[in-house]
Nucleic acid binder design. Structure first.
Lengths: 92, 92
DNA sequence: AATATTAATCGTAATATTGCAATGAATTAA
DNA sequence: TTAATTCATTGCAATATTACGATTAATATT
């Protein structure tokens, strides 16, 4: 099988955007070890999902976390992760 | 684009195992609208990930959430989801 | 205007995922 | 032992995802 060994690009992008603490541009290409078109695609996806925002600044584009949507996503995830069983239910 | 419209099978399986509150078997086939081999594959994946456990009971198999690993996974996820930006960082 | 820089888009190849029909293995019921 | 039930496995088709080279678009610099 063997999966999830290295951190997925999209997660890496988000984490880096968090680490940079503010906006950021396509140095992600250097940061993460993928070609420029590939990173661009991932950024497009993340933007489509609403998790990041991007604004053109001259020739480059500044990306950052969309904190509102990030929070909303977190709530949805928490709802799923929050469900719990009673301790005794370990029946298997 | 158009994605994530219906709930992914593996999520549906987990949710149902939670809802049932205790163990469960392959009625998941009826519950979720997929063929038996398909469900079986998904259960195998979930077991491989460690999120569920399965014990043979006669001719059928009883599956349930592996609460320990589920908790561990939750912590990993929380670490990722927990990261936050300062409010002012909305620069885009 | 000509060139350089940065990022998006297009086309395509490689790979992964998903789902199912057919079959097999194990257990139970007759 | 034979049939029935339940689940796992196999093989395969359809589709989705991921990544990249080549190109284009837009702005900046000279």
């Amino acid at each position: 099988m063997q999966k999830h060994l290295d951190i997925p690009p999209r997660v890496a992008i988000l984490q880096h955007l968090f680490k940079i603490d503010a906006c950021f541009c396509g140095d992600l290409v250097k940061e993460i070890g993928l070609a420029q078109p590939t990173i661009s695609q991932h950024l497009k996806e993340l933007k489509y999902l609403g998790l990041i925002k991007g604004t053109v600044e001259g020739t480059s584009v500044c990306y950052c976390i969309d904190t509102e949507n990030w929070t909303e996503m977190k709530e949805i995830m928490s709802e799923f992760l929050g469900q719990d069983l009673l301790p005794k239910d370990e029946c298997c």
